[in-house]
Structures are given as structure tokens and as C-alpha cells.
């Protein structure tokens, strides 16, 4: 493969308000942009080991997630995972086999991609609500831009879909039945 494959993985639980931000960003990006063929967007939901295949097959992983770091809600973060690995557990995770572990597994299999996490400090992750809080919703456009920057930095490109406005700060996403 000549071009570096880039996987943008939004993770989180959309039922826990801001916890679902990663998935919401993927929805926004898929809606608003077209990407070069080496870029893949994925709603990873709350899965751990089931993400091992896509993670171990990509060259560069961009994870979008909520990050609790004691800063004001809405604060944006960029975390290189090499740092993250040593110092962070997914403490509130319900999954012992989570993203950091999945990366460790990928390493054991000999296919560990380079990775970066683009995140945001959540305001509310209490169960159960499907809407983002106002403060986090107001940062969605900026978070999308950060992810797009990461995609470019890693060697991907994108174009705005013609008939769409750029992502706006309204992330009230309703889950709808997909009848195809």
C-alpha cells in the first residue's frame, strides 16, 4: 500500500449524553464531507475487541472520544497514545477490554498502528440521555475541524459535500430507523 490508511474511529455510548461525542462527530463528518480513499470513518460504539480487526489493519488511527481531565467542560484535547498508554486507564469504562487494551493486543499481533486521540471534556455523562449538553454541542464544529486537521496531518484529504453546510453547533442527533 503506497498511501497510508487512516482510520477515524469515534467511540462512546450515545445513550450517555456527552459520552457519545465520538460517535456524533463521525456522523457529522460523514454527513458533511467526502474523503480521499485512504480515509475510513467508523462508528466504534462501545466495542473493544471487536475493533481489533479494523485497528490492526490500519496504518494510522485517529480516535475521537470524551476525555475526563478535570478541565472545564468543552475543553479540547489532543493526546498521543504513546503517552496515554503508560498513564491512563479507561477507569470508568465498563469494558476491561477497551481501546488501550485493544491497542496492546494489536501490538501483540504485530500490527499496531500509530494513533492519536482527539477528545473533549464532557459536561454530563450520566445515564441516560441521547442529546449532547449545550456546552459540548457548541464545540462540535471545532472538534470536527480538529479531526479534519489530524486527517490532513496524517496524509488524508477531504472536500466539503456541495449541498451541505459545514458542521454546525447543533448536534441533536436522533436515532432513526434505517429503512433501505
Amino acid at each position: 500500500m503506497e498511501e497510508k490508511h487512516i482510520l477515524v474511529l469515534g467511540v462512546g455510548n450515545v445513550l450517555l449524553r456527552d459520552e457519545g461525542i465520538g460517535v456524533r462527530i463521525i456522523e457529522k463528518l460523514e454527513d458533511g464531507y467526502a474523503f480521499s480513499p485512504n480515509v475510513e470513518l467508523m462508528d466504534g460504539g462501545t466495542q473493544g475487541l471487536r475493533l481489533l480487526a479494523p485497528i490492526s489493519e490500519t496504518d494510522h488511527l485517529i480516535v475521537v472520544d470524551a476525555v475526563q481531565n478535570g478541565q472545564p467542560p468543552g475543553t479540547l484535547y489532543r493526546l498521543p497514545t504513546e503517552e496515554l498508554e503508560k498513564r491512563v486507564r479507561f477507569k470508568n469504562s465498563l469494558h476491561q477490554l477497551d481501546l488501550v487494551e485493544t491497542l496492546a493486543y494489536a501490538e501483540v499481533l504485530g500490527h499496531r498502528p500509530s494513533a492519536v486521540i482527539v477528545g473533549i471534556e464532557p459536561a454530563d455523562i450520566s445515564p441516560w440521555g441521547m442529546e449532547l449538553t449545550e456546552i459540548v454541542a457548541s464545540r462540535v464544529a471545532e472538534l470536527c475541524s480538529r479531526v479534519l486537521e489530524e486527517i490532513e496531518r496524517a496524509g488524508g484529504s477531504y472536500t466539503l459535500k456541495d449541498d451541505r453546510a459545514p458542521p454546525v453547533a447543533n448536534a441533536r442527533c436522533e436515532i432513526r430507523d434505517e429503512k433501505r
Binding site: E19, Q68, Y77, R78, L79, L84, K91, S93, P127
Partner: peptide
């Protein structure tokens, strides 16, 4: 499996380390 899938990265488990705010 007592799941409902909370999935937040929590660097607070480390006492000294602070992530850079970008």
C-alpha cells in the same frame, strides 16, 4: 456482563500527569 458501556477516558487515575490542553 453488566454493561451499559460507559466509555470515558479518565487521565485522573494518574496523580502527577496532566495532559496538555491544545
Amino acid at each position: 456482563c453488566i454493561a451499559c458501556g460507559v466509555h470515558v477516558i479518565d487521565p485522573q487515575t494518574n496523580e502527577v500527569y496532566k495532559f496538555k490542553v491544545v
